[in-house]
Design a protein around this nucleic acid. Structure first.
Lengths: 161, 161
DNA sequence: TCAATTTAGTGGTATATGCCACTAAATATA
DNA sequence: TATATTTAGTGGCATATACCACTAAATTGA
């Protein structure tokens, strides 16, 4: 029907963003009854798993800009799910933790998340899903960013070596 | 070192968003000299390829909410890269097109994009990159959304059939 | 010890993206 | 044809995310 060229056939960045919108919508549809967004659930869960991580540590783990993390946490702090606890020994540092209310919410949302997860793995296949996560996590590694930065873009002087 | 569980080891949605941030950063680093963002380049390129598409058509192609597309186009329209042309036969419809200035910008940015593309494929491997794009594009298909929606989440009555 | 540098976090501003409510226009239906 | 429904797009509001400039605190080094 439509053989117009599509950017995402060539550009992995476009393909990634587009798939991220699609999957985001699908997961959010399942998580909607909780009243929180998919990103917020990811955040609550990672905070639950990373005991006493600082904002900096969490931002690095999530491959997220530090200030972006701060902004994203604002609504969760405002609504009482998360709190920031100043570190005693280093007064620059703030440690992120769930409130009891936040933990309860995270656990409640996990029930919904499992449904989304089951739907996703049934739709794509368990093997493919696992392989995809591994590929994506490889790209998220700091070592990948280094490889990308070091890689040739074909324009270096003497790149025809 | 750190054997704390990570959400993105289990949750494809989290893994996708995280990889999207990483790759977004890497591509934007290369595209930065143009003054436009990665998403804006994707948009300009897709508009260039989709001759005379309406906002609705473009939004569907991009798996993007219609109003989100409208919002995202605002800065590009404001800065003269894109224009909306009302359709003659259906007065609800607006067709999206690049201005000559926008086309020039898109072509200029393509030079930069090729560098990012080359770096990415060198870092990940051409085969893997192609396979990843295909997997991602499969998820972005409308048919995948249908499969997800129809799929069992393990909680249906009689799901043990 | 004290100045220079690095590191953690905040606040502002801009884009990215989604939902909802609303208008206008086209289409379907009684 | 008159009304009901659907479709395209807009505007408001909220979250997601980045960069920059700035402050404060810790660390380095002369």
């Amino acid at each position: 029907m439509d053989d117009t060229p599509k950017v995402w056939d060539f550009c992995t960045n476009s393909a990634l963003k587009r798939a991220s919108r699609q999957l985001g919508q699908l997961y959010e549809g399942v998580l909607a009854p909780s009243g929180l967004r998919g990103t917020q659930y990811s955040l609550l869960s990672q905070i639950a798993h990373s005991k006493n991580a600082s904002l900096r540590t969490l931002a690095d783990l999530l491959v997220m800009d530090l200030s972006a993390l701060g902004h994203t946490l604002k609504p969760l702090i405002r609504d009482g799910y998360v709190e920031l606890v100043p570190d005693a020994s280093d007064r620059r540092v703030k440690r992120v933790q769930l409130t009891p209310f936040g933990l309860k919410k995270q656990q409640e949302m996990t029930v919904l998340w499992r449904k989304a997860q089951a739907r996703f793995e049934n739709a794509l296949g368990k093997q493919q899903a696992e392989a995809l996560r591994q590929a994506l996590n490889g790209i998220s590694e700091a070592s990948f960013a280094e490889a990308f930065t070091r890689a040739s873009d074909g324009t270096e002087p003497g790149a025809n070596s």
